[in-house]
Each structure stands twice: as C-alpha cells, then as structure tokens.
Write a protein that binds this DNA or RNA. Structure first.
Lengths: 221, 221
DNA sequence: ACAAAAGTGTTGAGAGTACACCCATGC
DNA sequence: GCATGGGTGTACTCTCAACACTTTTGT
C-alpha cells in the first residue's frame, strides 16, 4: 500500500524562543503578515520542507527571526488537533529555544510584519492554539530548570554566579539564598573557572563556564 | 498562501506498549505483514486519519492490537528524519502506553502477521528507526518512574505494596529496601486503602489504590 | 510446626535551609 | 571614604540509607 492512499496533513514547526531581557523572562512573537490570523501575534513557525529534518526546520525559523545559530533547542511536543488551523489539517511540532538576550538583532522576515519580545507575564492574544503551546513550554522550562543545566543557555558562555542566580530567580519567580545557591552549584562540579570580569564599576566577579551538556540531569535547586 | 503550495509528508503514530509479564519488562511488537520490512518486527503503528486527533490515532492502534481502552498513554517524541521510511517522507509521532499485563488477549490485526511480547533485554532487530524510538522510550519510562506515579499504571486498580515494589525493581533493574520503600510511599499520601487480598496461600496483604493522577510529580525513589 | 510473604523502628550520615558580615574595586 | 555588588561559614533540621525480626495465614 502506497503513501498516497492516505490523505496527508500539512506539517509545520513552531518555535518558542525564550530569553531574559531587562531582568524579565521574554518570549519572541511575530505579528502575522498573512491570513489566517493576519495582524495577530503568533509564535514563529513555518512549513517543514520535504527534504528537511524537523529540527533543521525549527533552526531555520530561529535563524530567520534572530540570526542566531548554535543555540539550545529542544523538541517539546506535537500538537495535532483536527481544527487547530482553519486552513485544514495542520500538525505542528513545537520546539523551545533558549537564547542569550544580549546582542540579538531582530529582523522581520517575509511572513512577519513585526517581531517583538514579550514578557511572559504580559502576553497578547495569540493565533491558532499558540497559547496552549506557550503555556506548555513555560511548564517545561521551569521544570527543566530544576532538573538540568538548561538555564545556563540563557547566558553568555562565560558568566558570573550572580547572573546565573538572577536567571533562576526570574524563571521561578522567587528569591534564593546567595550562599546556598553557590554552595549547591559548586558541589555539582559542573563549573569551570574562566578568569575575572573586567571594567565593571565595582569589585569584579569570577567568571565561569559550564563543563557539561545543558541537558545533563542534575538537581540545581 | 494555501496549504497545497507545500508538498506534504505522511504522518503516522507508533506506539510503544510496555507491560510487566512474568516479572520482566516487556514491549509489544508486531511482525509486519506488508512491505516495506515485510516479516520484520516493528512497533505497532499506522497512518493518522484526516479527521482523527493524534492521541486518538495512537489509542486506535493500541485497541486494535490489545483490545484495551482507558490505559495510560503519553506522547513521547516526534521522529522525522528524511530517510527514516524508504517509501518517502514519513513523520511519526511516538506514544508510550503502560498496561497491566494480566488479562490481555493479543489479536493479530490486518497489517500484522503476528503479535508478541518481547523482553526489553532480548529484542529482535526492528524495522524503520524503531530501535531508536524504543531506546528513547525506555529512558523516558525509567525517568518518569522516578519522578511520577506512572508506574502504578502497570498494575491493576487495586494492588499490594510488594507488587508495586516489584514493578519498580524490574524497571530499574535493582532491589530496594522493603521498609524504606513502604515508608516513602506512605509519606507521599497518594495511597488509599482498599481492603485485603483473598484466597492467597499465605498471609493476605492490604490492597491499595492510587489517589492521584499517574502524571502527578512526586519523587518516588 | 513450617512455609511464604506481610508488616514494622531505629540510628547515623548527608543534604537542605536559615541566617549576617567583611571584601575588593571604581569613583 | 563610600557605594556597589562579590564572596564567605555555621548550626539546625529533615530526609535518605542501612539494617533483622515478628506476624499472619494456609497447608
């Protein structure tokens, strides 16, 4: 029996890009330039090309909106409700990316009139089932923060302990004790010393980098 | 721009059905009755129908092979390598089901010549990328066992503490201390008393049921 | 009385939590 | 010398791990 004996749905990838900007957890949204949902905010995404692996499709979207490559990217979940797209049956594979917010220049792409960071505390109404996708990603993000090193991906390669602590405080929306946070991190043996900060207007902090993969399972908090 | 302006891949669901039978972790495989990979073992699966939600497709496969409904089912991951199917571009959404091994009558379905439980320690060569899918599921299974109540889904509604402990020992392939295991479980407050075993040839044990959802996050071990 | 599995407590070690002060630098 | 964030130690609590014997039932 051949493949064409079955009707085929369309397949897209959508990508939830998180970053920390101005001490706030933000997500990147685009304003749609085409129907359906023209002029509404939505997650960046697009059709998977025939010869393109799923992750490559997500990376392509990511790069089109942010110009970034080599960032942390993980497949989240596949959403395939029959009526999630008014054009017909469209199944979407959602990805989550974590990027270092500094040094990103946003560029509006072909399908998007506008590209903007939104605080997760203050989101607009979203197209399709993107609210569902986003709320799922937020759960996953918080959860992965506790059990893995993914949080480090929101920072530059070399970072200070207190910048890392701030990231954790923002994502979990609560404060941690400085001494306990440092003690825990050092005890995990995942940090490598990388010299000192320079040219800051106060006592320079030590810089560290991550020795292990961001996916490594460790209980950070 | 319409959906048909893009070539469309085919979409299937595959399902990894785990059970504990004869004190061993088993997975259900079918022997394929059609090309490609005719006569090779594979995970049960099939094309997603146009008006069918993804999870419904997986439940349909599950029911076709085992006759079971209302079992624990979770979406795992979506595999979409360009060359994973020799017929063309086929993206598959993998699901994992956990079933109580007793009282299952297997039935060969239309696409399958044979249906059989295999020990995860002794698997045959599998069709497509099903070895990758299976190895991913095993990781996820062990991991979910530690952090959630999913393990209970491998048992009947009412179970004894020692049958539960045995499940955990089989999945993690190591032994646990009886007193510590019981203490931990009781301290979680997720068990409800359900009377006693009857007609066993030794001291009857108390029966319990699970008060919470199998997905509830608790550190069991 | 014996076989088979059920059920039960204590102790020691290690991890987590709470808590406050001095230090290095730039201006 | 002062403002800014960097860096450090201790005591208490709680959880986890190790460990062996008595109880109940059927035969």
């Amino acid at each position: 029996m051949g493949l064409r004996d079955y009707e085929q749905p369309s397949v897209t990838t959508d990508i939830v890009i998180f970053s920390i900007i101005d001490d706030d957890l933000k997500v990147l949204l685009i304003k749609r330039g085409v129907e359906p949902f023209k002029d509404q905010w939505a997650l960046p995404g697009g059709f998977v090309r025939m010869g393109e692996a799923l992750e490559d499709s997500a990376r392509r979207e990511l790069s089109e909106e942010t110009g970034l490559e080599n960032v942390y990217l993980e497949q989240l979940y596949t959403f395939g409700d029959v009526k999630r797209d008014p054009r017909g049956r469209v199944i979407t594979i959602a990805y989550m990316a974590l990027v270092d917010g500094k040094n990103i220049k946003l560029k509006a792409s072909t399908d998007a009139k506008e590209v903007k960071w939104f605080s997760v505390k203050n989101l607009p109404k979203l197209a399709f089932d993107h609210e569902k996708i986003l709320s799922y990603s937020l759960k996953r993000l918080r959860w992965k923060f506790e059990y893995t090193c993914v949080g480090f991906s929101l920072l530059p390669k070399k970072f200070t302990i207190s910048s890392l602590q701030k990231i954790y405080e923002i994502v979990h929306n609560k404060e941690f004790d400085k001494r306990n946070f440092r003690k825990k991190l050092f005890s995990l043996g995942i940090l490598k010393e990388e010299g000192m900060e320079e040219d800051v207007g106060y006592r320079p902090a030590k810089l560290y980098s991550l020795k292990c993969s961001p996916d490594k399972v460790v209980e950070i908090i």
